[in-house]
Every structure is written in structure tokens, then in C-alpha cells.
């Protein structure tokens, strides 16, 4: 199983970097500050001059069905590769351990589960299966009871494997371009991620409330 890693300055810097990088804070920054932004570094495809002097991306325009779907999906692949490359680096530097350190004392007040579930919570953000396995262990070791397990499950079940799943497909949504080449989605990627996290906590508390209300009867 996973062991707890030491959390140093680097871990916190990696976490701060990740937040800034995906926040879109420097998306429109002039000059070198742009290197701190995901969409800036993700770049763009070159254009091909087509009929009537109009410029097209390699996918062209007017396609349909499976063939168009294939070429379109191909345009999403570099974004996913880049996003997961960056996520892998910040994870390696310990950003998630830093997040665990910050979250652990909050688990009891915000979710009603013990701080010892912190590692499982972070693992669940990366992989649904890792979270499931570790939650089972927490119950077997007597760290959480049946109700706490259900509350924890409510947190994990909605947007399971949040970070991995979001950056492996959702990131692509945020680099789609309009016909004029401008970015279609102007909301920074970090906002939906934050909303998901808030709703996961909210959902767990609905479960908490439900269990409390039904146990009184």
C-alpha cells in the first residue's frame, strides 16, 4: 500500500504551481509570464491554406460521422498528453501530499470522518479503485464505522477519480476553438475543478444528514 511521504517546501511549491498553472491567471499575461499558463504552453495547431484563401486546421471543415470524429479526437490528444505530463510532475514533487497535509485537520469538521482517512481521500482523487481499496481497509482496521464509510463513499462516488478523470478528458473541452480560432471556453479549468470538489463535500454532507435523520427513528 501507499506510505505517507514527507511534506517539504517543494511539495507546497508544486501545489501552488499547479493551482496557478491551471487557473488561467497568466493566460493573457504579456511576455514570459505566459510560461506559467497551461493554455499558453499548450499552443495551437498550424493552419493550412484552403479554398478561397481561407485558413483551416488539419481537421478541415464540413466533415461528418466516424471519420470526422477520429480527426477531431486526434486534435484533443496533445492536450491530454501535456496535461497528464504536468500532473505527473506535480504529483511526483509531492503536491498531493501537501494537499493531504492541509486537508487532514479539516476532515472531521467538513466530512465527519477521521483525519486518518486523508491518504485514502487523496488516493481517491487520483484513482477510484485505489480509493475503494483503501476505504475498505479503513473499515476493516476499525478507523471508520459503517456510516462513516457511506459518507466517505458519497464523497468518492460523485466525480470518482476526480483529478485523473478531469485532466484526461475534461481538459480537452477547455482547449476547443471556435470557428474564428478563439478559445470556446473562457472559464479557467480550475473553476469546474473547484466546483466539483465543493459539490463532493456537499454530497457527503447530504449523506451525513440523511444518516443522522434516519437513525433517529
Amino acid at each position: 500500500m501507499q506510505e505517507e511521504r514527507k511534506v517539504g517546501l517543494v511539495s507546497y511549491l508544486a501545489l501552488i504551481f499547479a493551482i496557478i498553472f491551471f487557473s488561467g491567471l497568466f493566460a493573457k499575461a504579456a511576455g514570459w509570464l505566459g510560461v506559467f499558463d497551461f493554455t499558453v504552453l499548450n499552443g495551437s495547431f498550424g493552419k493550412i491554406l484552403g479554398e478561397g484563401g481561407k485558413a483551416f486546421e488539419f481537421r478541415g471543415s464540413g466533415g461528418s460521422g466516424a471519420k470526422d470524429g477520429f480527426l477531431f479526437a486526434l486534435t484533443l490528444v496533445p492536450t491530454v498528453m501535456f496535461a497528464l505530463g504536468v500532473v505527473n510532475v506535480v504529483e511526483y514533487l509531492g503536491a498531493l501530499e501537501a494537499a493531504r497535509q492541509l486537508l487532514t485537520p479539516l476532515l472531521r469538521p467538513i466530512l465527519g470522518i477521521p483525519g486518518s482517512a486523508g491518504l485514502a481521500l487523496i488516493a481517491a482523487l487520483q484513482s477510484t479503485d485505489a480509493g475503494a481499496g483503501m476505504t475498505k481497509l479503513l473499515y476493516e482496521n476499525g478507523e471508520i464505522d459503517d456510516n462513516e464509510r457511506s459518507v466517505f463513499a458519497a464523497f468518492q462516488f460523485s466525480a470518482g477519480g476526480t483529478i485523473t478523470n478531469f485532466f484526461s478528458s475534461g481538459a480537452a473541452l477547455f482547449t476547443l476553438a471556435n470557428a474564428d480560432g478563439s478559445l470556446a471556453v473562457t472559464t479557467p479549468m480550475l473553476i469546474p475543478l473547484a466546483v466539483m470538489f465543493i459539490m463532493k463535500v456537499f454530497g457527503a454532507n447530504v449523506m451525513r444528514f440523511y444518516l443522522k435523520a434516519t437513525s433517529k427513528r
Binding site: G65, A66, F70, A73, L76, A83, L84, V87
Partner: peptide, 24 residues
Amino acid sequence: FVEGARKGWNLGVNNIIPNVLMAF
């Protein structure tokens, strides 16, 4: 980074392309 990008490639080939193709 390359390890992560490779994960992204595998996801793209095994997951995104087939899923998007089906959806289209």
C-alpha cells in the same frame, strides 16, 4: 513528464479516440 505524457497518449488512443468516434 514523459511518463505522464505517455499515459496521456495511451488514454487518447484507448479511450478518447474510440469514445469520441462513437459519440460522433
